[in-house]
Design a protein around this nucleic acid. Structure first.
Lengths: 152, 152
DNA sequence: TCCACAGACTTGACCGATTCAAGAAAAAGC
DNA sequence: GCTTTTTCTTGAATCGGTCAAGTCTGTGGA
């Protein structure tokens, strides 16, 4: 705390990032962006709404979806959609990392890209295809569920 | 056509496969298995229900889901769930191939595995993780949508 | 500083995919 | 053929997410 307004810094930063992306600066957008950035990532819309609410006071679920879409389109947020789970969001890091998903509990964590640049895998597809991204999802059991499974 | 009952052959084959998997042989199961095997693959539950109906006469959507789950669990069918689309099913080929999905129209097609064995990619994860499968999904534009996009 | 307007938020209805639950029907073993 | 157990049918419910209409609010210009 160097200044009386230190607590506002994250908000000012969020506002700056929105402005830089050419977006209007609104309370819901700042709050959601802070919620996404402030966590370890991988939170669903409803959880983000709750966290953003602590900042703005109130926020509809619909607005949360709107904001998340806008932020995703603007490249500030990355959404990860895993079959059977609600979409989860994290701050965009532009590092093309991948994900591990636990089949038992749904736990999701990052996995460093195994090869390098994006798309980090070359598909064997005709030239006419425009391949923009390769998403790799590893499925298996997290340490906890693995232990539980072998114990039973 | 070598015998009068030649038309029943696919059904007999389906029955045999169900029996081999230790499953009860029922009309819905044979019909759905035939529908999955007989197509190029990648059909959703509702479409499979329609096709199976042509064989059984009637079949509830619920039964279709039950059957598809049973067949998937038995390893006879592979389900592919892509975010934003209903689950699609294809005959299990045990060849660890991957998928390309068109962002514009949802079109899905197989892509040969780029590396080899499954899981064909080694994740950088602690040993305690039990990694069972690596699913690679390529996102982009199919030839048709690519042409449409560049034309506008 | 005030105004006007495009864009964003709230509320509430709606939707598609899938699952749950209860009772009827039908395989498989005896 | 009879019994048991699983599977199928019907109908309701759930869940994540979207659509639509009206109100509110940033933002740029007067």
């Amino acid at each position: 705390m160097t200044t009386p307004g230190a607590a506002d810094e994250p908000m000012a930063l969020a506002a700056e990032r929105l402005r830089a992306a050419g977006m209007r600066v609104t309370a819901p957008r700042m709050a959601v962006l802070m919620a996404v950035s402030g966590s370890g990532g991988h939170l669903d819309a409803d959880t983000l709404r709750e966290r953003a609410r602590r900042i703005t006071g109130r926020l509809s679920l619909q607005a949360t979806y709107n904001v998340l879409r806008a932020l995703t389109d603007a490249g500030l947020v990355r959404s990860t959609q895993i079959a059977g789970h609600p979409a989860r969001y994290e701050a965009e890091r532009h590092d093309n990392h991948h994900h591990f998903v636990c089949r038992a509990c749904g736990f999701l964590r990052d996995v460093e890209c195994t090869v390098g640049a994006a798309p980090c895998i070359e598909p064997r597809l005709p030239e006419e295809y425009d391949v923009q991204e390769a998403a790799v999802t590893f499925w298996g059991l997290c340490p906890g569920c693995r232990a539980a499974a072998s114990a039973s």
